[in-house]
Design a protein around this nucleic acid. Structure first.
Lengths: 354, 354
DNA sequence: TTGTAGGCGTTATCAG
DNA sequence: CTGATAACGCCTACAA
């Protein structure tokens, strides 16, 4: 018991090359570079970060040394004195919802383009989780994108006071937002439905806290008014495929010949449930979704929907955020992106019923 | 001229509350806490990180002070001495591909559960981008998940030597992997097709570098052999809906009555194209996809597919990684997750043609 | 149990 | 243009 086995394995050290004594060091620092380059660490720092604050000659020496040592900056060491991490956060309401996939994608892609990396989190549709997550993130990232946030305007503004914040799918006074202009797409949709003889449109709203849901309903109402079509609204539904299934009965009961849903997920669930119940779409009832998510055109009939350029939103938000991070002040606070009707098979003429 | 105006403004200082002198400081540090708590900073550090290394009394004092000052640890300051960021990276081959959404979701969710935050990046299907990204990430995160990596085994092992790495959808010797066991699902699928009278199955492979694609083809071959069905293979196709459309002609030309595709995207594109060409599915040709991605059941007929539990893969990989991060050594290197046939409408009996 | 002192890898402020 | 030297905020032996 007193003698621990000296060597568990006597396997010879692989690749034990003496001349690489320091070259293979796990994480070479600017001190190591300084040593082989024969300069002061601070000079190395300058050479590697600032552009022309160092003579061309020593720059070369330092770069060579860095290359030889296979040096990589330590981002967190750099972040400590500077406070910048070259990182931005994205918080989505529900990572389960494909709507956000496009947003994530857009943000990630344009972030990478500008050498920023994406930190992703979700709020699980909870305002408090969202705020907590945001707060924690704030300490790590340079800026934050909030996609369809559920927390108070107040809290959002508070966050924005700390570091740049961009909000997607909601308008918050005093903070930069990118919001789809629903008016155009919705009026196109309503006009199309009206043109097909629909007299009564029922709207299936999403979560009550959803700013976007309210905006969409507003737009549906005014478009209907304009087109002299009656607009009715159901109770809030969970914005999922299953939520759509659940709402089918109420939709039927509404007596409308056309449905517009808060999002495509609802529309798809509704479509499935109606078809399962023997209802023909669009002959008996027309369905119009919202967003044009991935898979919206997989259904039969493919879903007519008001496309919201989600990917663009994510990209625009990231661009805006990164601009805020570099430029000092940019006046524009609200970016609108266009929505448009994507006419597919799930909407059409109203057929005489009896 | 000799008397300067004594007070430029006589306006009383707004909100000059003396007691908040330090309370409202932007970013309180453990030093601030130490001051108000009347202890040494190091004690604060202990109190806030270590469990029972501090007396209950002073702990209370410190916690109160922290709460009062609204203290939040600075993760990057903490990361510098410890080297741990409570962060893990996930690199996916193509953020455009819905297959990865579930993986992302699974990883994000279980990461959050264990108080880790997710850093997301994509390699755009490029081996070099992937390696570069991975290298850069390595400096910031505690561990890395590689989903369907495209780089060399060698490079992956090199990364894994630095920090814990878990690979999804590929087997790399010496590094932890979570891979769907395709055999079960595929043999179920082939048996089902054989049972429906199919004598010749054509397989549409994915990207040539895809380890998974090769495995799937292998499994299809051996399952077919076992079921005494002929298996043929087409050229590699882009694993997208569009790729699926493009391959329709070749599928038809193969003379097979059933197709199995590398993934669902291919299957869906193929389905659409065949139907557009007046071919009836599954009456004239059966289609079996792979993965069971979101939307696979939106089609008409809904897609029969070999489900790969993507979300589970993401979750399992994250769990494994986090275990590696906390526990010292865990022997298990390969986690297999089961695949299973999801029988839906796109496959069925072969009908006599003429 | 608590305080002291040094360090983590960079940047930043001064001199020189 | 370059070299010292002090932060940045926290952790961690080591000592008291």
């Amino acid at each position: 018991m007193s003698e621990p086995s000296p060597h568990e394995s006597d396997v010879p050290e692989p690749h034990s090359s003496i001349k690489r004594l320091r070259v293979d060091k796990a994480n070479p620092t600017i001190y190591d570079i300084a040593r082989v380059a024969g300069v002061n660490p601070s000079t190395v720092s300058r050479a590697l970060s600032k552009p022309g604050r160092v003579s061309a000659k020593t720059l070369k020496i330092i770069e060579d040394a860095a290359a030889e040592l296979n040096y990589q900056v330590n981002p967190i060491a750099r972040a400590l004195p500077t406070g910048r991490t070259n990182t931005f956060g994205l918080i989505v309401a529900d990572i389960t919802n494909p709507t956000f996939f496009d947003i994530i994608r857009g943000a990630q892609t344009t972030g990478t383009l500008r050498d920023y990396t994406l930190v992703l989190a979700e709020s699980a549709e909870s305002a408090v989780t969202e705020l907590t997550t945001a707060r924690r993130m704030m300490t790590t990232v340079d800026g934050l994108i909030l996609a369809s946030p559920r927390m108070d305007d107040h809290d959002i503004r508070a966050l924005a006071q700390d570091k740049p914040v961009v909000v997607i799918n909601r308008e918050v006074e005093g903070v930069s937002c990118v919001i789809p202009d629903v008016a155009k797409g919705i009026s196109e949709a309503v006009r199309s439905l009206a043109g097909n003889g629909h007299k009564r449109i029922v709207f299936v709203p999403g979560p009550p806290q959803s700013w976007m849901s309210a905006r969409r309903w507003d737009a549906v109402q005014s478009a209907c008014e304009w087109s002299r079509v009656e607009a009715v609204r159901l109770e809030s539904a969970k914005p999922t495929v299953d939520g759509g299934r659940r709402v089918a009965r109420a939709v039927l009961a509404s007596g409308a010949t056309a449905v517009m849903t808060y999002n495509d997920l609802l529309a798809i669930g509704l479509l499935q449930e109606l078809q399962a119940g023997g209802i023909s779409v669009p002959d008996e009832i027309s369905i119009v979704g919202f967003d044009d998510i991935f898979g919206a055109d997989f259904t039969t009939p493919p879903l007519t929907t008001v496309r919201s350029p989600l990917g663009e939103c994510g990209a625009a938000a990231a661009t805006r955020l990164l601009d805020l991070l570099t430029d000092a002040g940019s006046p524009i606070e609200i970016m609108q992106v266009e929505t448009e009707l994507v006419l597919r098979g799930s909407s059409g003429k109203v057929l005489a019923k009896s």
